[in-house]
């Protein structure tokens, strides 16, 4: 192909992906509705897999999509569905503007300082492009994980079933309360709101204004 430069194309692709990921991460944190925030987190996790493709790690990209997009964002969305008060954006508490500014300053200072570390410090020179040898060697990766360090896999299995048993026994512990929870304020026994008498329904269901949290 005439005039097609892979290096330039890679830089364009990096910048495109970086912009998409940063915008989606900002939306996942700051979107008003928490359901949309959870969905934006899932999209962000699948775009991060694009970076792993740029970094010659195809298996990591696949695992990122399988576990992060398929598992973790599903967990978050499902937990949001289980918490009806969390879905109501009018009930959510937000920090005061002063706390926001202080946190923003701290985050920006830390990011800029670590960014200087990445660009300026002498060890950045030791990671040179000349050393890069591109190999998408899944066989070597499997050998590293399963053959040379097989105990890690068993440890991961133990960690997984420990968290699984802990989570399920926590869920089981208060089953009676849970059966009461679905008949609560937002449950099936919630007061039916007919469209005709919205005014009286609003009077009956008026919620107190969320108070400002002092810092």
């Amino acid at each position: 192909m005439q005039g097609f430069d892979p290096a330039l194309f890679e830089q364009i692709e990096f910048l495109l992906l970086a912009g998409i990921v940063l915008v989606l991460a900002y939306l996942a944190l700051e979107h008003k509705e928490i359901v949309y925030a959870a969905f934006f987190f899932g999209f962000m996790a699948s775009f991060v897999a694009g970076f792993f493709l740029l970094l010659e790690a195809p298996f990591i990209a696949g695992m990122q999509i399988a576990v992060y997009t398929g598992g973790i964002s599903t967990l978050i969305i499902f937990a949001v569905l289980l918490l009806p008060r969390a879905q109501d954006s009018t009930l959510e508490k937000f920090a005061t503007p002063r706390a926001r500014q202080i946190s923003l300053v701290i985050a920006v200072v830390v990011t800029v300082m670590t960014g200087f570390l990445a660009v300026l410090f002498p060890w950045a020179e030791s990671f040179n492009e000349a050393f890069v040898s591109i190999s998408q060697d899944l066989n070597g990766l499997a050998q590293w994980l399963w053959f040379e360090n097989g105990i890690y896999v068993q440890m991961i299995a133990l960690i997984m079933i420990t968290s699984l048993v802990g989570a399920i026994s926590l869920l089981r512990m208060d089953k009676a309360e849970q059966l009461g929870a679905i008949t609560g304020e937002f449950g099936v026994e919630a007061k039916p709101v007919l469209i005709d008498d919205l005014q009286s329904a609003e009077d009956g269901q008026s919620v107190p204004e969320p108070k400002e949290v002092d810092e």
């Binding site: 989570a167 929870a181 937002f186």
Partner: peptide, 17 residues
């Protein structure tokens, strides 16, 4: 009738985990 966002039963969360 009623709000669209009701509390789903907790026991389906077991399947997600």
């Amino acid at each position: 009738v009623g709000p669209a966002r009701i509390s789903y039963p907790y026991n389906y969360f077991v399947y997600t985990v």
